[in-house]
């Protein structure tokens, strides 16, 4: 590849099959002006070292596959221009706070389980009854949850959240924001069913509001905001239950 400039990538390597410890391997890359970090990794894999394992698919910032630590920051590698890191070197590591399966590939199974825990779907009895047309939802009602529905599941927020390393059972920003997205959706009636998963110490109250999740989020989902709103709602509910006599409410 006829490039214009050179830069060195230091890539985190770990192979579960060779019994060795992780290490960093350096590769020199000639790159074009519009190349992103992912382009460089793909070029290395294609031309120099096919043993590197990393995830990617859309290379347009929407599939959420290619999150990694670039010079210590959680980034979508398809979204990080190489020239911004000149003259280098660029250190590329798997996302922080996850077990590493191989090289830049992290274990996502825990994340997938967390997503399921918050019941991220519309809960109401007539959900499969399409005969009466759409549920009405005004633009203002959409605005109440819309930003929280923009999550691409890239998990950068988990890498940015220190609670994830201090309390590994924490549901984490993306999952809580997703639960909150459905709680705030005017079509949903399932808030009560999400309370158990979301309101425990490993849920909303595990969040200490560092706020870094919203800073590193590439899609402006604002998980920190979602979680704080969730805390307020949960606290209000608690007071309401406290004040109301027992058995008065359903």
């Amino acid at each position: 590849m006829a490039g214009e400039k050179r830069i060195t990538l230091e890539i985190f390597r770990y192979n579960p099959e060779d019994g060795g410890e992780p290490f960093f391997q350096s590769y020199e890359v000639e790159y074009l002006n519009h190349w992103v970090v992912l382009d460089a990794i793909n070029w290395i894999k294609d031309e120099i070292d096919g043993t590197i394992a990393h995830r990617w698919t859309c290379r347009m910032g929407v599939c959420g596959s290619c999150g990694m630590m670039v010079n210590g920051e959680p980034k979508l590698s398809c979204h990080s221009l190489l020239r911004d890191y000149a003259p280098g070197p660029v250190r590329v590591e798997p996302l922080q706070h996850f077990p590493v399966e191989k090289d830049l590939m992290i274990d996502k199974s825990g994340f997938m389980e967390r997503l399921a825990e918050v019941k991220p779907y519309i809960i109401r009895d007539d959900v499969n009854d399409t005969g009466n047309g759409e549920y009405l939802q005004t633009p203002a009602q959409i605005a109440a949850y819309h930003e929280h529905s923009m999550c691409i599941n890239c998990m950068l927020c988990y890498a940015g959240c220190p609670v994830m390393s201090l309390e590994p059972a924490f549901l984490g920003p993306a999952a809580l924001a997703l639960g909150q997205r459905y709680n705030l959706d005017s079509r949903d009636k399932g808030q009560a069913e999400r309370v158990d998963a979301m309101s425990g110490d490993e849920g909303l109250w595990g969040c200490t509001f560092v706020g870094e999740c919203s800073v590193v989020c590439p899609k402006h989902v604002d998980p920190a905001g979602a979680i704080q709103k969730g805390k307020i709602a949960a606290a209000k509910q608690w007071y309401a239950n406290f004040i109301k006599p027992k058995g008065a409410k359903k």
Binding site: E17, P99, V100, V210, E212
Partner: peptide
């Protein structure tokens, strides 16, 4: 096959890792 590599747990000075922390 070895299990996935787990990075060392955060020490007491974890908050020094990032500016916002």
């Amino acid at each position: 096959m070895n299990p996935p590599y787990t990075p060392p747990p955060a020490g007491p000075a974890w908050f020094l890792q990032r500016k916002n922390w």
